[in-house]
């Protein structure tokens, strides 16, 4: 095979920026937009997704040689759905307020195209070591974006960060930022910012 083999370190860090799942590939937008009302919600969603992504990557990379090619997508989905059920029950048992706030968006991790996309593009072709690194990298990239997005929306929308008020009484909260339009607008500016940074880097 003439395919270039990336270093192990690269498998991890590529998810943070170069192939960031949200900002570059625009995968997993539904949870990204829906739950980032506050930084805490973003963090919880990111961690849950990373857990599901990593666990299913391990299982799928281990059994990749036994899954018949024709039914691979269905098998991936069943494995992912199993881990989503685990994550959902875990959150409901240990963190009821967060589980209540995220509501149906936790079960919707099943149809997060980011997870299925990584299984199809990576775990089904690589050994588990690489698959774990890839999943952790992609997961960290996802968490990073979710927390940043949630942070910006929380600061502008309610003058707080992780629940602590940081902007004083003089600040008039921008209600729109914690309503649905704010999610689209913030992500739009994030993507434009990334385009700008990447171009500046390429020009140097």
């Amino acid at each position: 095979m003439a395919k270039k083999v990336n270093s192990l370190k690269y498998e991890f860090i590529k998810g943070l920026w170069v192939e960031n799942p949200v900002l570059i590939s625009l995968l997993g937008l539904c949870p990204t937009l829906a739950v980032t009302v506050s930084a805490v919600n973003g963090l919880a969603m990111g961690l849950a997704t990373t857990f599901v992504l990593t666990s299913s990557s391990i299982i799928i990379s281990l059994i990749r040689k036994f899954i018949p090619h024709q039914v691979r997508i269905a098998s991936y989905i069943v494995i992912i759905a199993t881990f989503v059920t685990v994550a959902d029950r875990f959150l409901a048992a240990w963190f009821p307020p967060i589980s209540k706030e995220l509501g149906p968006y936790i079960p919707l991790i099943v149809v997060n195209c980011l997870i299925l996309g990584r299984q199809e593009a990576f775990s089904s072709k690589n050994n588990s070591g690489r698959a774990i690194l890839d999943a952790l990298g992609m997961g960290s990239g996802f968490i990073l974006v979710l927390v940043a997005l949630g942070g910006v929306r929380e600061i502008l929308g309610s003058g707080a960060f992780f629940g602590f008020t940081i902007l004083g009484d003089w600040f008039n909260p921008w209600m729109v930022m914690i309503l649905p339009p704010g999610a689209f607008l913030t992500l739009g500016f994030f993507v434009a910012g990334v385009n700008w940074l990447n171009e500046r880097r390429a020009a140097q």
Binding site: P181, G182, A183, F184, L185, L187, G188, F189, V191, A192
Partner: peptide, 9 residues
């Protein structure tokens, strides 16, 4: 993608 998001907003 960026302008699509702004329009959606």
């Amino acid at each position: 993608a960026a302008i699509t998001m702004i329009v959606a907003g």
